[in-house]
Amino acid sequence: MKLQHLFGIAQLNKEQIHYLINMGDAFIELSKRPIKKAPTLRGKTIINLFFENSTRTRTSFEIAGKRLSADVINISASTSATSKGETLLDTAQTLAAMQPHVLVIRHSLAGTCEFLAEHLRETAIVNAGDGAHEHPTQILTDLLTLKHSIGDVAGKTMTIVGDISHSRVARSHLLAAKILGYHVRVVAPKTLLPSKVENYGCEVFHDFDAAIAGSDILYMLRVQTERLTSNCCFPSIREYHEAYGLNKKRLARANADCVVMHPGPMNRGVEIASDIADGAHSRILNQVEHGVAVRMAVLTAMCDLRFNAHDLPSNPDKRGTL
């Protein structure tokens, strides 16, 4: 499969999503080898261009590229030319002129990747998160984790809790849910819900307790604490935890085998209690682990390298297909 760009889940079909998840699944093993290196992307140049702070996503892309032998360069906005007044487009064009194969971009403005792709015709672009628009590799990561945890997601119920309004993760999941047939409940006060969110085909709850029963997946979003109170989206962090924080008592009302996910970084004691984050239901660290594998798959697809099952040991444990 060749992907020209990866802007979001919206551009993918069911087969492409499965393809990327399954390829990612096969890559998990690579990171467990004593020598974590495969030659798949040898001779490829990948630039991670991050205009927003990020530790895990940037590191995940970097490790994914490096383990596949690509040359990976990281550029963060604080050290880049943008602080000297260069426009986003100039920065991207300058880097593109150095002929990388892939530009991985994170930016606070929605639509950044589509915008740059109009002007950079030669370079493949991967969206590592654009404003409140999309975060496709996070969703592919989550789906790989779910494949391992619960098997087929079709027909399952994912309850996403928190700042839906500003969340690209929530939007990308809402799109993926339609494609793959899982059911989404969004839980937030009206101040944190985007206009007409129900058009995605999700159920909308303001009461977390009412939404928990029947949930197979509890997906807790990170609360941007400074944004929450300064925009009057919520009166206080304390009240947020009381209304929307996940704790033991609430978790007990979900399905017995319910899994808890979080895209990170967590605010312990705000959206999620520590004992839950570290408990048996949590898949949070699996998400991080699978993130590397999925990004290997995405980068491979971007470089038009057909995944060859013989290049890697077969996945020893096939826990169902998605």
């Binding site: 929605a110 639509g111 409140a132 628009h133 939007r171 206009s195 969110v197």
Partner: peptide, 15 residues
């Protein structure tokens, strides 16, 4: 405009 399109695009809307 604030509405379904702004939600899909992930941008802030003007109601």
């Amino acid at each position: 405009n604030e509405g379904w399109v702004s939600t899909q695009l992930g941008v802030a809307g003007m109601p």
